[in-house]
């Protein structure tokens, strides 16, 4: 594979009611092996996927929210969260997990992965992609 393509994964569903969120995460982790330019967008109910404090102990389901913290290890460092989607749900960035990646080129300096973007900005980002996957 010679040229790098820009891939964006759109996450629009809440985490546990359907399998979409976990499927998306698995595809991202598998796809990360191809060393493309990967970003994730969380919009609509997808913002609920990265809410902090998830505890599935009483519902007999796997809590996969810790896996989002591994994305940095997989060199997936761009997580866009749509501002309007947060606001419509009464949420702010403080309600989300603090997701980071470590920059090997800067002596493993810890950097934020999440960027809050407006709907218009996200539309523009989508426009810049080669491929957009929707979950």
């Amino acid at each position: 594979m010679s040229e790098t393509k820009k891939f964006m994964y759109l996450n629009r569903r809440p985490p546990y009611g359907t399998i979409y969120a976990w499927e998306s995460l698995e595809v991202v982790l598998i796809g990360a092996a191809f060393e493309q330019d990967v970003s994730l967008a969380f919009l609509d109910d997808g913002v609920y996927q990265i809410m902090k404090g998830q505890d599935t102990g009483e519902v007999d389901m796997k809590n996969f929210s810790p896996t989002y913290s591994a994305l940095g290890d997989y060199e997936v460092t761009k997580l866009y969260v749509e501002k309007e989607s947060l606001e419509e749900r009464g949420l702010s960035i403080d309600d989300l997990m603090h997701l980071t990646w470590e920059d090997e080129d800067e002596d493993w300096a810890e950097k934020d992965s999440i960027q809050v973007v407006t709907r218009a900005e996200l539309a523009k980002l989508m426009d810049e992609q080669d491929v957009v996957f929707s979950f």
Partner: peptide, 14 residues
């Protein structure tokens, strides 16, 4: 339903 709230990280004060 409490267990579903907890699973989703929704605190009761919300």
């Amino acid at each position: 339903l409490g267990p579903d709230l907890k699973a989703r990280g929704v605190a009761e004060d919300r």
